[in-house]
Design a protein around this nucleic acid. Structure first.
Length: 855
RNA sequence: GGGGACGUGGCGAAACUGGUAGACGCAGCGGACUUAAAAUCCGCAGCCGCAAGGUGUGUGGGUUCGAGUCCCACCGUCCCCACCA
């Protein structure tokens, strides 16, 4: 018997799959389709364990569906534009293009080692002109439809990457890549009108029943729909210039209008700007507000600041009552109208502000158990339900009734309208970077913004650029941006901004259906394959990529290029690969490969291999270079084999949860691979008769088929793998030398090989070949579960007395309740425990349990 | 501040719609093989107890014949959003 040598066996099977081109998906394949996709990687140059886990999971699904007879599309590509390539260019003087394609080549080789069932013929990178040129084509169609526009806006400026960031890319006031504090800057930028689809994007979530609730909720919160009232206050006395129709505010609490004691506007509000121009005191205040940062800590610490403008507005419901207009630092210009009315009694921010500046606090919502005469608001605003009081026509109404009544009244007065407001902003897609898809428009001094004519696409990035200075290389290229206007043939300039790389990844799944198409999307191919049946990736894209992709899919559908609204019918968000960290007493991180671990009972010790120096065992964290807790996949493949690595990252934790990489764990997986092979290699078929022992094995076989199938269907790979371990342990007890089980055993081996094939495909091929399976296992059908063969003839029922397990009885399958009851009461151990007690009740749950209630 | 998820052995974790808690793996312990070690194989193992038995799924209550699972309160950890009117 030879030891199984993955280094020898695995490459052979990969070569065999490639030789037969087994994973190529054909658009004219008549079988039902199944599209499996994992979020495509950024070509950093090296794969890491996170990739191994992500792509192994997708491969399990793809191979399982293939075995079930689906026409499976499982493609791979590269999310290849972006900052790291430019950083490399600046740091090491390499060209982003060369750097990127070299990384792709290196990573492709590493990914291929994984033995994934990928159709490599469809591979592309988003930085291929054939891809981004098509992106430019649909971008111009959206421009034509008015879904793309240009405006001056205050944007998030990352001073390190020297580019604009979308709101989604600002985390706690810092750039998501650079970590630099983001600044506010006014720039003319390109936007995609995602807000046009805000409602539809929320509605659509309802149909995504195979998405995690968490992600749907995050998207819903991100879009942030709120219903309220938009209305205008008239000014008392002369209205400022441009505000003749009043000061417009937005509120979700029109029911509290009688409790209003001030109106506040944002420091960036046009009215504030106008007053600042005339009054240095106002100007100074506005400047002070602008200084505050936007990070969490700064907002937490920031005091409410306000300045009374001296202007007053008229209360819409109370004749003669006026309210002061303040400029306040806590009002956001880009939400609602940038102005609110303050009702301190029922809003905490308004209350804090009112207490600071000594403004009236007027309760108008009375909690159920409070007394109207004595109810007061102290330091906490009351935001709960209740009855409206001190509010004229709304008195006695509930909060909800009053909201509707106030909206009706304001609408009747012609002062405003019920309105829906979203937190979601339009998607700013301009990036002042080189390594991205050029925005295909031309700026003509006479004609304005002119789309690049279709026959001049793609607008290709020039290769001859320099990175010796920060900023956008396209802007300082000597010739690239100079062109002629397609309309008037006069001198004109190309747009030098490039598109946010999230645009690239918002439609690649559609391009995979026919990457060769002369149009952006081959509609027939897209109709054939979309939506993606199972999409797999990290939860960090819950609101970025996944929201953008849903939006672009809708926009392209409205353009007639796609038929689906939702690109991903099923979504799975997988957890990360983590590793324990080790550090010297000095705090210096130490790589796992240099650490020796020992255990004494429950105590674990780590020492430095070289010196024996005692190390600190730190937290378990996501593998990262900075903590030095990374394990290189290639070294693991070399040492234990690809299958062992794939098996381990899926076996130890539920797929949605983080998995902790341990040497012991992967060694265990490697041992299992060896034991599986030994079991197959040992097998020598003998006689073929089957008896009770054979039936017992057959029952186990069919129970395992059921369990593993369900595990794969429900993304519980860890449980499925555990069942396979168990199956192997049982199988060992049924050797072919025991002639009576030979037939059942050969069925068991055949089933085992096919069940494990999605997880450890190389090993499965070797086993299949060893038992003389027909063809390759990639083409073998998934085993079929036969319930009749899984039924035990006898079963063991636990017997409880007063809910405590005391004994167990053996009964025939399907035994009647009376028989079970009788047998339970007759049981010897049961009688002992029942001594001195009276049986009051016996509960028999068929096939489950017996509980005797006695006292 | 708002929203959400989760708390099970030394560790990662199982447990279908309420029905034998801890499957499977890691680490551990014992044994076989070996001159020895490694590897491999066989076995033990929640905790307390020699045993009988007791006890046990973050804490405290509740519903139920029966609760890891359902309900209430609390404690803790993690994630998302955040001066969003």
């Amino acid at each position: 018997m030879a030891r199984y040598n993955p280094k020898d066996v695995e490459p052979r099977w990969r070569a065999a799959w490639a030789r037969d081109d087994v994973f190529r998906a054909r658009n004219d394949d008549p079988r039902p389709k199944y599209y499996v996709l994992e979020m495509f990687p950024y070509p950093s140059g090296r794969i890491h364990m996170g990739h191994v886990r992500n792509y192994a999971m997708g491969d399990v699904v793809a191979r399982y569906r293939r075995a079930q007879g689906y026409a499976v599309l499982h493609p791979m590509g590269w999310d290849a534009f972006g900052m790291p390539a430019e950083n490399a260019a600046m740091e090491r003087g390499v060209h982003p293009k060369g750097w990127t394609y070299e990384n792709i080549a290196a990573m492709r080789e590493q990914l291929k080692l994984l033995g994934l069932s990928i159709d490599w013929s469809r591979e592309f990178a988003t930085c291929d002109p054939e891809y981004y040129g098509q992106q430019q084509a649909w971008f111009l169609k959206l421009l034509d439809r008015g879904l793309v526009y240009r405006k001056e806006a205050t944007v998030n400026w990352d001073p390190v990457d020297m580019t604009v960031l979308a709101n989604e890319q600002v985390i706690d006031g810092r750039g998501w890549r650079s970590g630099a504090l983001v600044e506010k800057k006014k720039l003319t930028q390109w936007f995609l009108r995602i807000t046009d689809y805000a409602d539809d994007l929320i509605e659509g979530l309802g149909s995504l029943d195979r998405w995690p609730d968490k992600v749907r909720l995050m998207q819903e919160n991100w879009i942030g729909r709120s219903r309220g009232l938009r209305f205008s206050f008239d000014f008392a006395g002369d209205a400022p210039n441009g505000f003749e129709t009043g000061l417009e505010v937005y509120t979700t609490r029109p029911d509290t209008l009688f409790g209003a004691s001030f109106v506040a506007i944002a420091p960036e509000h046009p009215l504030a700007a106008q007053m600042a121009a005339a009054d240095p005191k106002v100007a100074a205040f506005v400047a002070e507000c602008r200084r505050g940062g936007t990070s969490e800590a700064e907002i937490e610490a920031a005091d409410k600041l306000g300045l009374d403008t001296g202007l007053r507005v008229v209360h819409p419901f109370v004749p003669g009552q006026t309210l002061p207009v303040w400029i306040a630092n806590f009002i956001l210009m880009d939400y609602g109208t940038g102005a609110v009315f303050g009702c301190p009694a029922h809003d905490q921010r308004d209350l804090d502000f009112a207490r600071k500046y000594d403004l009236p606090v007027l309760p108008v919502v009375l909690p159920a158990d409070a007394d109207a005469a004595t109810f007061m608001v102290g330091g906490d605003a009351y935001t709960g339900p209740g009855t409206i009081f001190r509010s004229g026509f709304m008195d006695g109404m509930s909060v909800e009734e009053a909201k509707a009544a106030a909206v009706d009244r304001i609408e009747g007065m012609g002062k405003g309208k019920g309105a829906t407001v979203y937190r979601l902003r339009d998607w700013g897609v301009s990036r002042q970077r080189y390594w991205g898809c050029p925005i295909p428009v031309i700026h003509c001094p006479k004609c304005g913004v002119v789309p690049t004519p279709a026959d001049q696409l793609p607008v290709i990035l020039p290769d001859d650029v320099t990175f010796d200075r920060p900023g956008n290389p396209l802007l300082r290229h000597p010739t690239w941006r100079h062109t002629t206007c397609p309309r008037c043939s006069g001198e004109a300039e190309r747009e030098t901004d490039t598109l946010d790389t999230f645009v690239d990844s918002s439609w690649y799944f559609a391009r995979f259906t026919n990457p060769e198409s002369a149009d952006p999307i081959d509609k027939a191919a897209a109709d054939r394959w979309l939506p993606v049946d199972q999409y797999i990736g990290g939860v960090e894209h819950a609101v970025l990529h996944l929201l953008y992709a849903r939006f672009v899919t809708r926009a392209l559908k409205d353009e007639g290029m796609l038929s689906v609204s939702e690109p991903f019918a099923g979504l799975f968000t997988q957890g990360m690969v983590t590793h324990e960290t080790y550090a010297r007493q000095t705090g210096e991180w130490i790589e796992p490969t240099q650490v020796v671990l020992e255990a004494e009972g429950a105590t674990r010790r780590a020492t430095l291999a070289e010196t024996g120096e005692s190390l600190i065992i730190g937290d378990i964290e996501k593998m990262s270079k900075s903590k030095k807790n990374v394990v290189a996949p290639e070294e693991i493949f070399e040492q234990y084999g690809v299958d062992a690595a794939r098996l381990f990252v899926m076996s130890d934790s539920p797929p949605e949860r983080d998995v902790q990489w341990t040497t012991g764990g992967v060694e265990g997986a490697g041992r299992f691979v060896q034991r599986v092979w030994a079991e197959f290699d040992n097998d020598a078929a003998a006689a073929t008769q089957t008896d009770a022992r054979g039936d017992e094995l057959r029952r186990m076989t069919h129970k395992t088929i059921k369990a593993v199938t369900e595990s794969v269907e429900q993304f519980r790979f860890n449980s499925g793998i555990a069942k396979l371990y168990e199956f192997l342990n049982v199988l060992k007890g049924f050797q072919s030398s025991d002639g009576s089980v030979a037939e059942a055993r050969s069925e068991a081996l055949s089933v085992f090989a096919r069940l494990i094939a999605p997880f450890t495909p190389h090993l499965a091929e070797a086993c299949w070949s060893r038992i003389g399976g027909e063809g390759m296992i990639v083409d073998a059908a998934w085993p079929v579960f036969d319930p009749a063969l899984a039924v035990d003839s006898e079963m063991v029922l636990p017997v409880q007395i007063n809910g405590r397990r005391r004994s167990e009885i053996r009964v025939a399958q399907g035994a009647g309740e009376a028989e079970v009851r009788e047998k339970a009461l007759a049981d010897e151990t049961v009688s002992v425990h029942l001594e001195g007690l009276t049986v009051r009740k016996v509960i028999v749950v068929p096939g489950r349990i017996v509980n005797i209630v006695a006292g």
